[in-house]
Design a protein around this nucleic acid. Structure first.
Lengths: 134, 134
DNA sequence: CGGAATCCCGCTGGATACTG
DNA sequence: CAGTATCCAGCGGGATTCCG
């Protein structure tokens, strides 16, 4: 609850924490990335992403719809079909996201090496930090 | 090595989940953003960020050091001084992070409006989705 | 098929106290 | 000052089941 009176830093912090509540979410990013290609239906998304529970898919899609990042279109056919697509806002987010993806592609291997080297030399395996994703 | 049937989607997913384990972390991003300005000492970081426990600061810094994103320099003075600074890798991450920050600055208000409108019209407040940060 | 509601476990991460 | 070690509450999120 401490309020440092630094306009520069804390302003950035506020913005970042705002965007982090969106971007920091694993599934949110996944969904946006997948929807860049083309609109998808619910189970199509579920299958494409793989590893997401329908609960989290529903929640995340609803949050994204709430934020105006994706549109939800219901086709009143016999088996109900619901299509999700990125809005303009959603697309705009995909751009910095792509930048992040590019950074990952360029540096993720290096990071893997760094971790191996760090763990190799007198590594305090103690409260093991961020696990290396595979 | 890699690459089953869908090189496009699943490849991106893998990259993204890797980078998300870094970027998705609130404190990691905070620390990197703060260290962009200049190197800082432990308690300096703690004070500047504000709201982080020293435990999380220690953990996150160690993880960043492990990844080769920040350097840790110990000055063997009477009260021990430890300076943390971004490495080249850390700086390179700060660029896409800035892009994200810029996106946030440009669209975060619009998102706030969208949420209000969505909540206003027949909003299922049920398992309330992502909370609106203030 | 798309989605809501319940249950429940595990890990994240905060508070606190101790050490070099 | 910098860091470690415990303890523990909260909630993120998976599995399952039921509805329109």
């Amino acid at each position: 609850m401490t309020m440092p009176a630094l306009p520069g830093v804390s302003a950035h912090c506020r913005k970042m924490s705002s965007v982090l509540s969106i971007v920091g979410d694993k599934w949110t990013v996944m969904i946006v990335m997948v929807l860049i290609e083309r609109p998808r239906r619910f189970n199509d998304l579920k299958r494409t992403i793989g590893g997401i529970s329908q609960q989290m898919l529903t929640r995340t899609l609803k949050a994204l719809e709430r934020d105006g990042m994706v549109s939800r279109t219901v086709h009143p056919t016999v088996p109900p079909q619901v299509e999700y697509a990125l809005t303009e806002l959603g697309y705009s987010l995909s751009e910095p996201l792509r930048a992040l993806g590019a950074w990952a592609g360029a540096h993720i291997e290096k990071i893997g090496e760094n971790r191996l080297r760090y763990d190799g030399s007198g590594a305090p395996t103690s409260t093991s930090p961020l696990p290396l994703p595979r």
